[in-house]
Nucleic acid binder design. Structure first.
Length: 578
DNA sequence: AAAAAG
DNA sequence: TTTTTGGG
DNA sequence: ATAAAC
């Protein structure tokens, strides 16, 4: 499938690329191990004023180290200075430079780029020149978890989400390191400069886009990932096609994993990769092959292999089969190679898939299930379920997790994590014993029975109950996968079948359940990986220290972050998938 | 396919 | 060069 | 024992 693609047009632009590589290559024979951060087309002039000779020389050699060129003012396309006041700087520039709007950046840009091994965007460091930055004034309201409790409207979940936090004290320190120490004469210009350093601070949610906060780390759970990449979302969508294809093709699952990691790295990167696509390879998770694809995308506007995959009918057909509950990549391949080309063919070939959801029924409600669910409806469905539960098990609380909690405007399903009977507030001693397993199973049983009788639940796709002694003793979590049909209301003018997951667990591990059911997929993978490296195993039923059997007490998400030494990541910044 | 571990 | 890549 | 789902 793939080899038809890349080398089909080897001739013309291949030469062009070879040429570019030559251009990039020259100039540093001295230490071949050096990574190129600047393009050789970056011609930098450093204003001498206010710098000591040593500092000036150090900067010039840093430019060379990073693969750039020092130039005189006339030929420079970037000017660096340690001054902060535009009016003062102007005195040192010739008219030509000002007319050409050559960007004048603070020297910390070079230091930061060196530190990140990546050419950073000019914008946050720009003092003057360049195209005028158009600051969008869209403000995103900070979403709180929708939680419920029979006893108080306010539970610890609400308090747990901090107000829009003032961006990163951490990064401020970082900036101060690179900024020079001597004081300013012009205060008002200093203020301008500070604003320039954190350009998105006032326009975007919290600190996710202010690049001083961005770190090139290898765990997705450590870096803020917004719903959509501001600058590279189209690229992300292209790479996602490759990821899916690698899964569908089979035998390339790890390949797909690599694409997933690359995608999450790009999602977290707060600048456009367009100006310097080849630098993408400096992102952790992006290696030489994916870097090449990124270059191709930004140079030619498309990735050839992705175009081919999108057109491929086998890919399209198998993707469609995978929408059926119970059909993953393997069965999709089986159906396809068995000759199936339509959903009807699949039905004819038959076989029951999920235990309780038969394939023709699955197909019947599929048109509904393909529709996304608006946030208001997610809330209403959750409340319906919780109201019922509250009669059966008073004192419970619930949190709506999944994509909803990550701030998605539309969800594919509803994930409700319910804690019995009530999670501890911070500092509060446990005043009730844990619910025993039988009781918990009984609660789920009653809940499902009632909601079925009321014809709210139309299908019970699957119910998993803690079966083994191990599970019953240490990590009890019940999962009911159901389909509901809500009744018509103001928020639900046209009722449709909706997939709902109901998760039921004890309060001691409520935090783990919430963290584990909030996602995104890549976020979960990396938090598990991090936990493993730190000597724990984490999953939605609890955080367990290696060698132990019982999970640690983690009534709140924050408990897990804290134990793992991980900075708390608000749900809305956990969108590490495409 | 990428990065860590050996 | 080999191993790991999320866990139940 | 394996695939799929979460």
């Amino acid at each position: 499938m793939s080899n038809s693609v890349h080398q089909s047009t080897p001739s013309p632009n291949r030469k062009g690329k070879q040429k570019r590589i030559d251009l990039i290559e020259p100039q540093n024979e001295s230490s071949p191990k050096r990574q190129r951060v600047l393009s050789s087309a970056t011609r930098i002039f450093i204003l001498a004023d206010k710098l000591t000779t040593e500092e000036h020389d150090a900067l010039r050699s840093l430019v060379v180290d990073l693969g750039g060129m020092n130039a005189n003012m006339t030929f420079a396309n970037v000017i660096l200075t340690s001054m902060r006041a535009p009016r003062r700087i102007e005195r040192y520039l010739n008219a030509d430079v000002i007319n050409r709007h050559v960007p004048v950046l603070h020297t910390s840009w070079l230091h930061d780029s060196a530190r990140e091994r990546l050419l950073l965007a000019y914008e946050p460091y720009k003092i003057m020149g360049g195209a005028s930055p158009e600051l969008e004034k869209q403000r995103e309201e900070l979403g709180l978890d929708v939680v419920g409790s029979s006893e108080h409207e306010q539970t610890e979940e609400k308090k747990a989400i901090p107000p829009p936090s003032p961006p990163h004290s951490d990064s401020q320190t970082l900036q101060e390191e690179t900024n020079d120490d001597d004081s300013q004469t012009e205060d008002e210009d200093d203020a301008t400069f500070q604003r320039a350093l954190t350009p998105f601070q006032s326009t975007q949610q919290e600190d996710c886009e202010g690049d001083p906060d961005w770190k090139n780390v290898d765990y997705a759970c450590m870096r803020p990932s917004p719903l959509k990449s501001k600058q590279n979302q189209a690229l992300v969508d292209e790479l996602e096609v490759l990821r899916l294809q690698r899964i569908l093709a089979g035998k390339q699952e790890m390949n797909a994993t690599a694409y997933g990691r690359a995608i999450s790295a790009i999602k977290a990167y707060p600048h456009s990769l367009q100006p310097n696509p080849s630098n993408a390879k400096n992102l952790k998770g992006v290696g030489p092959k994916i870097a090449k694809l990124i270059v191709q995308y930004y140079e030619e506007g498309r990735i050839a292999e992705v175009d081919a995959i999108r057109k491929d009918s086998a890919f399209q057909t198998m993707s469609r089969f995978m929408q059926l509950y119970g059909v993953g990549p393997k069965r999709a391949r089986e159906y396809y190679s068995g000759g199936a080309r339509s959903m009807d063919d699949v039905i004819k070939m038959g076989g029951s898939l999920g235990v309780h959801l038969h394939i023709d029924e699955c197909l019947r409600i599929l048109p509904d299930l393909q529709r996304t669910i608006p946030r208001l409806e997610v809330e209403e469905i959750s409340k319906t379920i919780f109201d019922e539960l509250n009669i059966i098990a008073p004192g419970s609380t619930y949190v709506i997790c999944g994509g909803y909690r990550r701030g998605k405007p539309e969800s594919n399903d509803v994930d409700i994590v319910i804690s019995l009977p009530r999670p501890l507030q911070r500092g509060e001693e446990p005043d009730r014993g844990i619910w025993n397993v039988k009781e918990q199973i009984a609660v789920m049983d009653k809940l499902l029975k009632t909601l079925k009788r009321k014809a709210f639940i139309t299908h019970v796709v699957n119910v998993s109950t803690p079966a083994s002694v191990y599970e019953m003793t240490y990590s009890r979590l019940e999962l009911a996968e159901v389909v509901v049909m809500p009744s018509r209301s103001e928020t639900i003018p046209v009722p449709r079948y909706r997939r709902v997951d109901i998760i039921l667990g004890p309060w001691e591990t409520h935090g783990a359940a919430v963290l584990g059911w909030t996602g995104s997929r890549q976020f979960e993978r990396d938090i598990r990986l991090l936990a493993k490296h730190k000597g724990f195993t984490f999953h939605s039923t609890g955080l367990v220290h290696q060698g132990e059997r019982a999970p640690l007490s983690t009534p709140q998400e924050e408990d897990i972050f804290e134990i793992l030494g991980l900075e708390y990541m608000p749900p809305r910044l956990r969108n590490c998938d495409a």
